[in-house]
């Protein structure tokens, strides 16, 4: 007879097992962080951590958003547009008072969830390829953002901007809250369905999992996260800008790929996405400190995508 572990012990072991295959990434990340802290000792202070996480935070959010969609065997080319929509909605809806701010942020995220859910519904129920549906949606969502605000404008309450992007690590705190929320979701049947539907959709369907619902949920959460990234960017810049999110589409894919999500679904983890985005952020900062011009970032980003995918393929072949 086997030893039956307690529920908490089993849960902890399952969570730990999901680090499998990612230790290399975490080690690389630790080394790079150490290098960065060595180059820039100012990192190791509240202010340093605050400033660093503020740059990283939006990328981390869209990396999680992209990973969720890629887990489902899709790809989301509308993430940048959704972030843009998030900024203009935030700059329009978020009021001066605390209540107004709360309602505005909630409304913005809700619209992001609805947009993502709609895209997910089209993909899941009509069987259309994600790449082309999200491409078309990027026009629809981007167009909606332009309707709300044809050019950068609007404003965010000063106290909110100060709270989110002032000299304190609020961003880090929110990120941890999001990770905890995901951990809770993952401990529900729906969360398990999302992972299973990504891993083996046909098998999950035969096991009685509502695969369509899992897909739609993944896209909806993804849309909500992208819209919230928009709220944060608006707080950073103090205004809404319909086009500001566009570069984030590529960065989200880079980070998700670095975090280990396969291109045909499955295998990705949220912690991987966060680690991938952190890796990207640290690399950018290290390059800055080494005195490379900002455009070198583009070249670096392109090269590391290819390197990451190439190494992954070669490792799979060797295995």
């Amino acid at each position: 007879m086997r030893q039956v572990p307690s529920g908490a012990a089993l849960h902890a072991r399952l969570i730990w097992r999901r680090n499998r295959g990612q230790i290399g990434l975490f080690v690389l990340l630790a080394l790079l962080l150490a290098l960065y802290a060595f180059l820039h000792p100012g990192l190791l202070s509240w202010a340093g951590i605050a400033r660093f996480t503020q740059n990283w935070f939006p990328v981390a959010l869209v990396a999680i958003a992209q990973t969720l969609v890629m887990l489902m065997g899709g790809i989301d080319l509308a993430i940048g547009a959704t972030v843009g929509l998030g900024t203009v909605l935030a700059a329009t809806l978020v009021g001066e008072s605390a209540l107004g701010a709360g309602l505005g942020i909630t409304a913005t995220v809700a619209i992001g969830v609805a947009a993502g859910g709609l895209v997910g519904t089209i993909v899941a129920l009509f069987g259309l390829p994600a790449i082309i549906v999200t491409l078309a949606s990027s026009f629809l969502i981007g167009g909606a953002a332009l309707l709300v605000m044809p050019r950068p404008g609007g404003s965010m309450p000063g106290w909110l901007s100060e709270g989110l992007v002032g000299v304190h690590p609020t961003a880090l705190l929110i990120l941890i809250l999001i990770l905890v929320a995901w951990r809770v979701l993952r401990a529900t049947p729906l969360g398990l369905s999302i992972d299973a539907a990504g891993d083996n959709p046909a098998g999950a369907f035969r096991s009685g999992v509502n695969v369509a619902l899992a897909r739609i949920a993944a896209y909806a959460i993804s849309g909500g996260l992208a819209a919230f990234a928009g709220v944060y960017v608006a707080a950073q810049t103090g205004a809404g800008d319909p086009l500001i999110g566009n570069p984030l589409t590529l960065q989200s894919i880079t980070a998700a790929v670095l975090g280990g999500v396969g291109f045909l679904g499955g295998q990705g983890t949220i912690r991987g996405a966060v680690a991938g985005s952190l890796l990207l952020a640290v690399l950018v900062n290290v390059m800055f400190f080494l005195g490379l011009p900002p455009v070198a970032q583009y070249v670096m980003q392109g090269l590391i995508i290819v390197a990451a995918m190439g190494i992954k393929r070669l490792r799979e072949r060797a295995a």
């Binding site: 992972d195 999950a204 499955g266």
Partner: peptide, 12 residues
């Protein structure tokens, strides 16, 4: 044709 999700655990 197995319906298992390869990356998930035995219990799951």
């Amino acid at each position: 044709e197995l319906s298992l999700a390869p990356h998930l655990s035995v219990v799951e």
